[in-house]
Design a protein around this nucleic acid. Sequence first.
RNA 1: GCGCCCGUAGCUCAGUUGGAUAGAGCGUCUGACUACGAAUCAGAAGGCCGCAGGUUCGAGCCCUGCCGGGCGCACCA
Length: 664
Amino acid sequence: MRVKVQLVSQINFVIIRITMYQTKKILREKIEDRLKLEWPVTAEDIELTSTPDEKLGDLALSLAFPLARKLRTNPRTIAARAVELLSGLEGVERIEVAGGGYINLFLDRQSFFDQKFKNLDRSGLEPEEKKIIVEHTNINPNKAAHVGHLRNACLGDTLARCLRYKGEQVEVQNYIDDTGVQVVDVVFGLIELEKKTLAELEKMTDKFDYYCWDLYTRVSRYLADHESARNRKAEILKKIEHGQSPEADYAYFVSRRILRAHLATMSRLDITYDVLPCESSILRLKFWEKAFARLKEAGAIYYSTEGETAGCWVMKLEDNEEREKIIVRSDGTLTYVGKDIAYQLWKFGLLGQDFYYEPFATTGDRTIWISSGEPTDYDVHFGGGSQVYNVIDVRQSYLQKVVVQGLRALGYKQEAAKSIHFSYEMVALSPRSLSEIKVELSDEDKERTFVEVSGRKGLGVKADDLIDRLEEKALAEVDKRNPDLKEAAKKLIASQIAGSAVRYFMLKYARNSLIVFDFDEALNFEGETGPYLQYTAVRLKSIFRKFEEKKGMTGQELFTKVADSQFDLSQLKPEEARDFWELVVYGSLLDEEVLRAIATLEFAGLAKFTFNLCQKINGYYHRYSVLAEQNEKLKTFRLKTIYFAHQRLNQALDLLGIQVPDKM
RNA sequence: GCGCCCGUAGCUCAGUUGGAUAGAGCGUCUGACUACGAAUCAGAAGGCCGCAGGUUCGAGCCCUGCCGGGCGCACCA
């Protein structure tokens, strides 16, 4: 079932962005001012890191080590002098030398607490780009989506969320290759093997993407075995590229129908798009011709007259003079790279031309627009970004380099530098998962410890199958714990749990790490998983629900309206003071984690951070009862503490695309 | 052959861009539900960080070589 889900982002936590990022920023400047009077230090030398243990301090400087080398003296001497120079720093309680020369800072907790909990909306994060384009998903519209596509979409969607959190304007594009060879294969199958008319296809109601998944595999095998059929395939390709033919009508029908299936699959994970640029529109509007003329003019490509590439337009590779990449084939047709160069130019607004658009679908209150080669009634525009992320797996690194080289050759140095290939490793299948989906392996594949997902071979775990299984399992768990809920509510919750499981699973691995997909791991709801994070947030939510029921006051009202001076940190027992502090400091690191994630294009750290935050939260309220606390001041203090943690967690979960139900 | 990536606990993986005692989850073993929700929490065991050199105050991280595995190098995308 497809459940329309609400975006979590708009409601609760618009205001609260308590962050260590800003504290560090201010401290760094002050430290630099003081130290540079005596030593040759710059802002970059002053890196405030966390200490390995809370007892050692809150923030650490290791600059004594490199400085000692430069000044030919002892790190401890430097550190000791630095402590003198930094004495009385605002917001810092004391400074100590530790180890071989670490300078450890202990923040003034009361003032950090007071200040941070008052200045709620000062994050210190600022946008740097005019507009950022994130291209992801990009599934050939000829078959069902599989787990490999899910990794791509989860990474791309999370990147977009992080960039938006930072304050950037983000446009999410999903490129649709509706005239490519993969669609051609399925059209060939429908016409030549299945002998289906368009009218018959339109009557097919269920799982068209699954039907095409099988058909595509059959066609691939058929074409491998029947060389004579390849002429017919080539003919279909040309007709589809040219448009205005029965074959093109099939391609249009297939690609749109499958595209809708993909969008439905992705919406199950709360993933959506702004615009769907189609290859057919690029061809119709002759984007390539413009790019072609410019590439020729700039001498970026040339007509080859000898060797294997005779009769083709080719590009020499910058890093390897020996090699050349064919851009236009000897029969005059365009390779994928050629189209991609034109597309990349358009993304930066360098083509001097835009697509036409029309609405294709809506998710929530957002419209998804699709490109058109013909004028429409809608005055909307896309593209024209100042920075572009292409989320594409690592196997296409070489082609991405060629695209960027094309931009550089045209003199667009800036845009070339701002073209970022977000590469990631593929998803492969374990032998066990293969036996679960009952596929037969070639003898060669049987020797391997894992097998690459392949749409052509039909080797893959379909995205909807995985999500279905997760929902089924989640529904059973929800039913067990909340038997009184209505059926629709249970299903909605199950879908949210399934989504969180998929998303966390796809994000927890570093992008360079190959995922060998295993059902047992993906279906796990305990430990470091999406549902664990969700569960933590749900329990916090219910604490505040109960609080509101009793007191008629929301957590936010308590947090923002009840004065901080009511409670003095020194009244806490040392153990609780420590646990409180650890939770607050850790929670305040979120913004830095987001910036790091963007800088390194690595979300595993953000996922792990969120998980660790959950562990700390669970531990905290396990040790200190909140609503049952008799001392009202202490109770208020604890409520505010977990409210803060709750908000930070909600923000982190929103970035990971994980939704928080009321119960689960 | 050339290029890129990976090798860390029994398994799956982190490791903050060279910093303090290498961390999680799963699995195994102990313990905690008359509940602010046990999808949880507390604890234990488990490591020549593939191997060998080098760089330096300091290396899982950087350099070189080797071993093992993967992916690219199409007139496919």
